[in-house]
């Protein structure tokens, strides 16, 4: 998988590069719109992560040009401008997704995987988690023929952990994922723990749910062979 990271903030593009390289992506970086434009038209990428606020180039312009030229790459627009119009403009111009800075790298990866699933049809639409089967399309979890009645948030947590299996996910990362853009007060609480507790209980009614491991003081990990 080839990814082009278009981001004028070098430290940020570096962190994204480290993360994606570890996940097995092959990364290329462009710090200016000019070099990004050259690279997009010369090389073939699966993903272009594109910062809209480039100093020398309007990111939307680049997106438009690339889309018009029929480039295959999936575009994910990254922006810190916080303008509501940006999101709409980006998606209108054919971007595949939109992430507002600051975003979690796990969130970025989850979005990339979602795009892949969409692009490659319904092949990978279920995930096997030990004895359970997760149907992503219909947002349900089965044990053999039994549907396990999960709430929306419980499903989201399990899905997120499955996407990032064998990796510690902190409470902050989980909270940001399931509460997303909701701006509210009561954030730093133990609600994640409550959700996990309920999730474990519901799964345990059918089979062993020890694969959801609590990493003390840090977060949770879904262990899978």
């Amino acid at each position: 998988m080839n990814v082009l990271i278009v981001e004028d903030e070098r430290q940020l593009s570096h962190e994204i590069e480290i993360f994606l390289t570890k996940q097995g992506y092959h990364c290329d970086v462009a710090f200016t719109g000019k070099s990004a434009s050259e690279k997009v038209f010369v090389n073939s990428y699966d993903f272009v992560l594109m910062d809209i606020g480039l100093p020398d180039y309007n990111g939307f312009q680049l997106l438009k040009e690339a889309k018009e030229a029929g480039r295959e790459a999936a575009f994910i627009v990254l922006t810190a401008r916080g303008s509501i119009d940006d999101k709409i403009t980006g998606l209108d111009l054919g971007a595949d997704d939109y992430l507002a800075k600051p975003f979690s790298l796990l969130e970025l990866q989850a979005r990339m995987q979602a795009i892949l699933r969409r692009k490659h049809g319904l092949k990978n639409n279920t995930i096997q988690i030990h004895d359970f089967i997760m149907d992503i399309q219909n947002r349900s979890v089965f044990f053999e023929k039994n549907v396990i009645n999960l709430t929306k948030k419980e499903f989201d947590i399990l899905h997120y952990m499955a996407l990032h299996k064998n990796r510690v996910i902190t409470r902050v990362q989980l909270t940001e994922h399931i509460w997303g853009d909701v701006l509210e007060e009561d954030y730093e609480s133990n609600y994640i723990d409550v959700h996990i507790k309920n999730l474990r209980k519901k799964l345990a009614a059918f089979a062993n749910s020890d694969f959801i491991e609590t990493v003390r003081g840090i977060g949770y990990r879904l262990n899978m062979p």
Binding site: A80, R81, S104, Q173
Partner: peptide, 30 residues
């Protein structure tokens, strides 16, 4: 507002991603 967003959220973004990366480095003590 646009400028403040950009100027404040970009450094936060760098820090957040760096912390995420370090948490996943092998061999970091508990």
């Amino acid at each position: 507002i646009t400028n403040v967003s950009h100027e404040l959220l970009t450094p936060i973004s760098i820090l957040q991603n760096r912390i995420e990366n370090i948490i996943n480095e092998p061999g970091v003590s508990n």
